[in-house]
Design a protein around this nucleic acid. Structure first.
Length: 646
RNA sequence: GCCGGCGUAGCUCAGAUGGUAGAGCAGCUGAUUUGUAAUCAGCAGGUCAUCGGUUCGAUCCCGGUCGCCGGCUCCA
């Protein structure tokens, strides 16, 4: 029998017989690995553990620790669920059932939506199938044969998938009494699924198209160990506790009322204080960095939006125009046409560029009722927008500079982990494809010079140009898209912008749109969830609560509050006739960072007893010293000195 | 917008086979003067989302509408 040379991830090369399998390889390494093995990656392709390997290749045994291993695990779990559904609901037609980031779903065509009781029954049935420890078997047959069979069974969704596949041969996977069209790979046996839970069910359109039939989707998660499921459920519970809508109510940060309208945010005083801090910092840093801050109105002539192309390319996201004195007006969905109009208010020389104009611009976008979500998805929001007008030669340097500035701002808010994406030309786009290519190359070069690793999102660009998106990771490692840097060669063209170059010729500037925090509303929502409502001192709505032990200390406590206020520290006096325990409890529940407890002893020594939120009593300090410590923490934003870059 | 679930006091939630409702917290008043996560008492607070139907009678059953929640979709 001929031999194979397989390269393991650690670089070592091992000899195997031709036709060996991933499982054999795993066994040869260690029994533990053989037990944990879910699939194997051969030469970059993920295949079944039982698939024969016939040529020399790098191989990697996949377990639940690798993303690809998890995907296989969850996909097999989806098959198990599909079997359970088909056995409990005969006649249920299968659509698709992929693995997703955390778990899987499967879409079914059934006459009635699934009820919570149905899900319980399905879970029980799945447990039976898992106990069978059935083996997953792959088989192949000609596509035409499979298509004829699905048509005969009126298996319309599988038939549609088969029609679109290009291969002559298609694969099926069978376990227990269930078989499904599937590319695979799959787990060796159903018994590997040790813990699972069906987490949700909902309607979902076939192929995400609202003109096609609505199917019923069931979501689930599964794990090779019971403890991992518990951890996952705990993480869900933690996310629920951090929900910005809940904390927004508890901490009286913001409200959204039926009376005012869905997706329109009312910033209550506490939330408004945080917003002010965010905006003050933002303004300060922008001015320091060479931006000018501008203002523009919330509506404009409809003609402006015709010229910018928004009425063609952005219509479904805009509120309908309205009329006054026979002219049509449009509520603004973006700020760019205003900044462009400002640019045209005079002539510019190449010496003036780059121009950096920023605005906290409130825009209004029409979002369908069903998609509104707290602060994360709203109809009116304020972008921390800016437009850079740049010479073509200066473009790349400007992008590199901007990426650096962006990272600096995000860091100040406690975000230093992010994923970077380069989004390219979408189907619906304006402009010459050659310009797109050039712009995409420029962005790519800037990313590389800035030393950022990035992924490419094909077709994810804006209609007017390619873009770089930075998605920050929060404390629960969830991703949020906030920053976006978008290239635009279309608007300068449409509005006939120019500058005078060194040779005296008129040239067309390039334009960059950018938002760093994205929308202040959404960013605030992300901050709330990231910090679980425990804002760092510099952002906290109330920074200190001064708590007198008895009423006769109110006067001293009020004087302490005054001293704090003199230093612009947001301090509040709790002068209620309550026991100190009650005052502390209330301050703790409001997540106020510091409590200054003052009694007779403190009053006599011009001092305060400092208590830190969720930490406890940290001792008595001279008032002067306590104030200085607060000011220091505010100035450094609670970050290490090395991180503040000040 | 579509599918499903939900809508009772400011908040969190009970409630009855259909006979028009309760608790805790918050609020107000009073007493209490307290040393690091809840002092006590009293008062007040509701067209039971809304409109219609069934019924002697609807907050409860049925239907429409609005809103919220979970998805689909889209994105900042």
């Amino acid at each position: 029998m001929s031999q194979l040379q397989l390269t393991l991830p650690d670089g070592s090369v091992k000899q195997f017989d031709k036709g060996t399998t991933g499982l054999d390889v795993a066994k040869s390494i260690s029994p533990r690995l053989a037990k944990a093995a879910l699939a194997v990656k051969v030469d970059g392709r993920v295949v079944d553990l039982t698939a024969p390997i016939n040529s020399d290749a790098p191989v990697e045994i996949l377990t639940f620790d690798q993303p690809e291993g998890r995907q296989v695990f969850w996909h097999s779990s989806a098959h198990i669920m599909a079997q359970a559904v088909q056995e409990l609901f005969p006649g249920a037609r299968l659509a698709i059932g992929p693995a997703i980031d955390e778990g899987w779903y499967y879409d079914f065509d059934v006459p009635e939506p699934f009820s919570p009781e149905d899900l319980e029954k399905i879970e029980q049935k799945m447990a039976e199938i898992i106990r069978e420890d059935a083996v997953f078997c792959r088989s192949e047959r000609p596509r035409t044969e499979a298509l004829a069979a699905s048509r005969a069974q009126e298996d319309v969704y599988k038939a549609e998938i088969l029609e679109e596949l290009e291969d002559d041969t298609v694969s099926f996977y069978k376990h227990s009494r269930f078989e499904d069209l599937c590319r695979g790979p799959h787990l060796p046996r159903t018994g590997l699924v040790k813990a699972f839970k069906l987490t949700a069910s909902s309607g979902a359109y076939w192929r995400g198209d609202e003109n096609r039939p609505m199917l019923q989707r069931i979501y689930g998660v599964s794990y090779p160990k019971k403890g991992m499921l518990d951890e996952y459920l705990e993480r869900l519970a933690e996310a629920k506790k951090r929900d910005h809508r809940l904390l927004g109510k508890q901490l009286e940060l913001f409200t959204i009322t039926e009376e005012v309208g869905g997706g329109l945010v009312l910033w209550l005083p506490n939330g408004a204080r945080v917003r002010n801090e965010i905006e003050n910092y933002w303004r300060q840093e922008h001015l320091r960095a060479g931006y000018e801050i501008v203002f523009s109105p919330h509506i404009a002539n409809l003609d402006l939006w015709n010229r910018s192309g928004h009425t063609d390319f952005y219509k479904e996201d805009m509120f309908s125009p309205f009329e006054a004195e026979g002219r049509a007006f449009q509520l603004r969905p973006m700020n760019c046409p205003f900044h462009i109009s400002m640019y045209k208010s005079r002539r510019w020389s190449y010496r003036d560029l780059p121009l950096r104009w920023a605005e906290l611009g409130t825009v209004y976008r029409f979002e369908r009722g069903g998609v509104l979500h707290g602060l994360m998805r709203v109809r009116g929001f304020t972008q921390d927008d800016a437009h850079h007008f740049v010479t073509q030669e200066g473009m790349e340097d400007e992008l590199v500079w901007l990426l650096d500035f962006c990272v600096h701002i995000l860091k100040a808010f406690g975000f230093s982990n992010y994923d970077v994406y380069l989004s390219t030309r979408p189907e619906k786009a304006i402009g010459d494809p050659a310009d797109w290519e050039r712009a995409q190359d420029g962005l790519r070069a800037a990313l590389e010079r800035a030393g950022l690793t990035y992924q490419v999102d094909e077709g994810g660009g804006a209609f007017y140009g390619p873009k770089i998106d930075i998605k920050i990771k929060d404390a629960l490692n969830r991703s949020w898209q906030c920053s976006t840097i978008q290239f635009d060669f279309s608007l300068p063209e449409r509005f006939d912008l120019s500058y005078i170059a060194a040779d005296g010729q008129q040239r067309r500037p390039f334009m960059i749109h950018r938002a760093l925090l994205g929308s202040i509303e959404r960013f605030f929502g992300v901050l709330i969830e990231h910090y679980a409502g425990n804002f760092p001192l510099w952002l906290a709505p109330t920074q200190v609560r001064v708590l007198p032990i008895t009423d006769d200390l109110n006067e001293y406590a009020a004087a302490v509050v005054e001293r704090l206020k003199e230093h612009d520290i947001r301090a509040v006096l709790d002068s209620r006739s309550e026991k100190i325990g009650a005052k502390i409890r209330d301050a703790e529940m409001l997540k106020v960072p510091y409590m200054f407890v003052v009694g007779k002893r403190e009053a006599e020594a011009d001092s305060v007893s400092v208590r830190r939120h969720s930490v406890g009593d940290i001792g008595v300090k001279k008032t002067e010293e306590a104030v200085r410590a607060l000011l220091d923490e505010i100035a450094t934003k609670g970050l290490d000195k090395s991180e503040t870059n000040e």
